[in-house]
Design a protein around this nucleic acid. Structure first.
Lengths: 212, 212
DNA sequence: TAGATTGTTAATCGATTAACAATC
DNA sequence: TAGATTGTTAATCGATTAACAATC
């Protein structure tokens, strides 16, 4: 695979995948970049350009075959790897993520949950038993876990991440609102909800002011 | 306020705010763009440029006063408006959001919860009673709600959003993985978790492949 | 004053949009 | 074939980075 793909392009792929899923469910077999763009509020040129950076997926004069394109995007995003996933921190957010349907739908295997609270350890959440975070390294190795979701309190986030050094883990999805530094060789994505909330607040504040 | 602020800049403001909060908690009174950048992995030029688009907040040869800058950014983001917020859909995600500490910390008032499930209506979540979504319009008006968080299943998301037309609501924070269209005059922010998860999967897949 | 650091203008870089030839 | 739509190159736009004068 080429390596000159922009982050902006990568972040649109999940949206494309989702739209193709809806189209497929409706029985649509072929979709043009025009129709595609209409559904997503993205220009057709943008979509064609994004897709073209991975190869030639469409048929000129026809459009894109929905199921085929869907499968190819899923593959590009690495969803065919069937990553094994763990959640650390089984508070309200960890609990919600343990029930998040998109995780299995996108072929991730949720195989471990961790907490440091005796009251939670041993309990089952969505059919999966909560492990003691003291056994983190052991369980990560046993279950060959590549992705860890951080759902611990802010103060514990950096220590939790540090503990992943030298394990099977290759990626971290961080929900703690702090810019934790990942160990070498581990990729981190910060899922900062305050960004969306702040952006929303900013824009609705603006629409109240003078000019608008 | 000027109106030529890029979305990229706006989305960095919550990160700046967070960093200033940590700095303040440590007792740091003044911070330079250099130190600021180091903490966030953002170039100091970027930070100065972002801030400069809202006015002159720093002192040449000195830096930025932490508390003052923090207050000004909070104001720019509209957090001084003390928005009244409701959550629609009290499943696992709605429950997690009802406990999300950043909401009160950023001066949002969570004042209503809604569900359509009789088993949940009337129960208290984090001290707040769950209302029947059938009373949506009534409660929105009574409690003067400006922001609604959508945490309902995908199939119900568009109908829920449509029901907000002509109410006090000015902004929607949508967690349903679908590109719902907002009624006229209502701002919408899509919080799509599959984007972060897809990006993470993509990057760790890449680091396994040929060249890397 | 000398040193440090901002605010701002200019240069560069990258992403989006437009245009169109290729081709189904 | 004629019409439609992709894939790709060129043009434009916008955001980031670099440089430096202003000034604390």
């Amino acid at each position: 695979m080429r390596n000159d793909i922009s982050q902006a392009t990568i972040e649109r792929l999940p949206l494309y995948l989702r739209t193709l899923g809806f189209a497929e469910a409706e029985g649509t077999e072929i979709i043009s970049s025009d129709e595609f763009g209409r559904r997503l509020n993205i220009t057709p040129e943008q979509i064609r350009k994004d897709l073209a950076s991975f190869g030639q997926f469409g048929k000129k004069g026809v459009g894109y075959y929905v199921t085929e394109l869907k499968n190819r995007i899923a593959k590009i995003l690495g969803f065919e790897n069937n990553w094994n996933v763990a959640i650390v921190g089984m508070g309200h957010l960890g609990d919600a993520l343990a029930h998040y349907k998109k995780i299995p739908e996108l072929n991730f295997n949720l195989v471990a949950l961790f907490d440091n609270d005796k009251a939670r350890i041993g309990k089952k959440v969505n059919g999966l038993e909560v492990s003691d975070v003291a056994d983190l390294k052991k369980v990560l190795a046993e279950r060959n876990i590549q992705i860890v979701i951080i759902a611990v309190p802010t103060e514990e986030a950096q220590d939790t991440v540090d503990a992943l050094e030298g394990t099977t883990v290759r990626g971290i999805w961080n929900f703690a609102p702090i810019n934790v530094k990942a160990p070498k060789g581990i990729r981190i994505v910060h899922e900062d909800l305050t960004v969306g909330l702040g952006s929303l607040s900013y824009h609705i504040s603006q629409s109240w002011n003078p000019e608008n």
